[in-house]
Design a protein around this nucleic acid. Structure first.
Length: 288
DNA sequence: CTAGGATCCTGTCAGC
DNA sequence: TGCTGACAGGATCCTA
């Protein structure tokens, strides 16, 4: 799934276009992708779109909130019915595919929302993502939402350090990826935060100092903010809500997907290995 | 409680 | 061309 910056970028883009619009119809093409009865969102108006970690929360006028999680391959495509070229999405964020810019719904469209004045398509190649309506008052009690840790910039170094102490046998990257510890960090930003902090992602948490925790949080915050500012990342993967490409990776990524290339800091070759079951990129000179 | 691996699902790509 | 295995910007479940 897109990580925090991509989800935030989608949230902002969709907010500009969907708020105050009413859901007139919902088409569920994949049962697994829509949890619960679709009727509870029909006829309701979107009043706000929130984000918590990597989850989007669409607050509706009838006391229901639609939670959406894109997981690995989810994408959201907004198509304004006013558009003269209806096959061109006026707006898209998520994992692009060949039919990304073709007419929707496509092969990977799992749910379609028809609004007054536009359509929203929830596409998801691997079907890991989902839409789940829940009462707005119960959002905070949702099992996933309730278990989320703080956003990176809200976390104190001492808090993270105490997790390092408790889980001293885990690679630091596994802890950064754990949404219960910190919310919003995924594979890209975990690698980038480790580069910023000069820490090898596979290093066991028990060997880190509180200063390392501080650097990791600072790095995650800076790298994610920079990504949000540039409209999210891309690598022929994620595009901005208005269809233009986010360019975070090209411009700012120091290690992610840069294996075989020179480290911009020291010139050493960036290496790709496997840590915590995930592809992991790092500079063997800068990160210990 | 922790750590590690399998699992959900579809598609693509490298290597034979 | 076809097959096979590895892998993928996530998170959960199961096991030891």
């Amino acid at each position: 799934m897109p990580e925090l910056p991509e989800v935030e970028t989608i949230r902002r883009g969709l907010s500009e276009r969907c708020i105050e619009r009413t859901i007139r119809e919902v088409k569920v093409f994949c049962e697994k992708s829509f949890v619960g009865p679709k009727e509870v969102v029909l006829g309701a108006r979107i009043v706000a779109i929130r984000r918590r970690g990597k989850a989007l929360l669409f607050d509706l006028s009838n006391g229901v909130t639609m939670m959406m999680h894109l997981r690995m391959t989810g994408q959201l495509v907004w198509d304004s019915s006013e558009s003269s070229e209806k096959h061109v999405p006026s707006f898209a964020g998520g994992h692009p595919t060949e039919d990304f810019f073709r007419r929707m719904p496509g092969k990977q469209t799992r749910v379609e929302f028809d609004f007054d004045g536009g359509k929203l398509f929830f596409n998801d190649q691997r079907k890991f993502g989902f839409v789940k309506p829940i009462p707005t008052k119960e959002v905070e009690e949702d099992k996933f939402i309730a278990s989320l840790g703080p956003e990176p910039w809200e976390m104190r170094a001492e808090e993270l350090f105490s997790v390092f102490q408790r889980r001293k046998g885990s690679p630091v990257k596994a802890i950064l990826l754990d949404q219960k510890v910190v919310a919003g960090i995924g594979n890209i930003y975990a690698d980038e935060a480790c580069f910023f902090a000069g820490v090898y992602p596979g290093r066991l948490a028990g060997t880190l100092e509180v200063q390392d925790a501080a650097k990791l949080l600072e790095g995650a915050g800076k790298v994610m903010q920079a990504s949000i500012d540039s409209g999210g990342s891309t690598m022929a993967t994620y595009v901005r809500p208005d269809g233009s490409r986010g360019d975070y990776l090209e411009k700012f990524a120091e290690v992610f997907r840069r294996e075989g290339k020179e480290c911009r800091r020291c010139g050493a070759e960036i290496v790709k290995v496997r840590v915590a079951g995930r592809g992991t990129h790092y500079c063997p000179e800068c990160q210990k």
